[in-house]
Design a protein around this nucleic acid. Structure first.
Lengths: 217, 217
DNA sequence: CTCACCAATCTTGTATACAAGATTTCCTTG
DNA sequence: CAAGGAAATCTTGTATACAAGATTGGTGAG
């Protein structure tokens, strides 16, 4: 992994987990001193961050970590909701043993993450793993990766929403329902389930009230 | 529009319409002479083209116009198929007069493009306009733009497939069916229709046999 | 004190020299 | 003649000086 990729991974991670708060200035010269690298390669990194809307570039003024765009969040949730509904239905009853075991193991690890220190970080990793594995098993990992390129806003939204522990239990339980459906096609309510699972309470005022300074105006 | 944006638009256009054939070398120095601009801003343009997979960058070797990736084509078609099916169903029977007129006008212009000189170019523009308008009317233009950022491969595939005139008539006819459904919800076969409309004959050997030199190996 | 204006100092944008790796060419050697 | 290797010449990658716009601070006039 090249030094540029390391820097990009590092910055992306810090922006996604809100260590770098929306509005933070990412000056090229400051970064070049921090990473002991000239401005040119750093500009490459910033260009990519801008294209994936991690940052907003204001020419001759500066680069700011982007504010969370709730419109983008809603659109991505809709996209995932429609797509995963279809993918899960197409996969139902056709799961091979290997895939089943893979999903069960992820579920256990996700459950195990709850309550431990640094819980949210691990929980979210396994949450992504669950959904990504479903895409993979359906031969649609390409689309998973496509969505990942545009999910900074969703990712940060999700983090702020999952600060309560009871939410985490609910999410794991919904994952269990999805796996059940994949194995037995029992639940007739799979569409509503997936809809609810991804949509969460996007329309609540929770974010606007508690994290207004992170939200795009 | 800045000079950089002009260059990028121009290069994107030439790659999409196959004026710049897959495998063509895009050297920074050659481009900098062609556009009378230094390498630095041109590298910005090439970086973006690379991120949208218009080109492949081989470090210290060169930049090549990417070969058509049929895997990417299939995945994008699946994505659009699933998404547009849902969007069209959600819009059926709820179309306002303004939207109806907009779609009808696009249909006429698309029909009118057939047979005239430079037909394919105009036809495809109105083809995109039809689908984009449907996304827009459903409040999902964000997702249309998202897909557009990853559709170089699909765009070129589509061009090679639409070289026959009878194909064009068929496409317009399918658009008429879609509009009918939006107005009357008559056809019960809307899902298969959209599926067929977008999928075309992706599994045919037409491309592999006639344009093997454009296809990713 | 307040407001206006100018200069100093930020920011990113551009041009260019140089570094380093890959390729090609051509000369040497067997 | 053929094959190997070194050097010239491509390529992109990096560092840095300079350009140009934006902001900020201070200073002087009213």
């Amino acid at each position: 992994m090249s030094i540029k990729e390391q820097i990009m991974t590092s910055l992306k991670h810090e922006i996604r987990n809100l260590t770098l708060k929306p509005g933070t200035i990412l000056s090229e010269t400051v970064l070049s001193e921090r990473f002991q690298l000239s401005r040119t390669p750093l500009r490459d990194v910033l260009k990519q961050l801008a294209l994936e809307s991690y940052i907003d570039v204001y020419p001759k003024k500066g680069n700011l970590v982007s504010y969370i765009d709730l419109e983008s969040v809603e659109q991505i949730i809709y996209l995932r909701s429609v797509l995963e509904k279809e993918i899960i239905k197409s996969l139902a009853g056709k799961l091979a043993l290997k895939g089943t075991l893979e999903l069960k193991e992820i579920l256990e690890k996700q459950q195990g993450a709850i309550g431990r220190e640094d819980a949210l970080e691990h929980f979210l990793t396994w949450d992504d793993a669950f959904h990504q594995t479903i895409f993979k098993l359906a031969g649609r990992e390409f689309l998973w990766n496509l969505i990942q390129q545009s999910n900074v806003h969703y990712e940060r939204y999700r983090r702020l929403h999952m600060l309560k522990q009871e939410k985490l239990e609910e999410i794991v339980q919904e994952h269990r329902y999805i796996l059940d459906y994949l194995l037995n096609q029992e639940s007739g309510r799979i569409e509503e389930l997936i809809h609810h699972h991804l949509r969460e309470d996007i329309n609540s005022l929770y974010l606007q009230e508690n994290f207004a300074e992170y939200i795009k105006g």
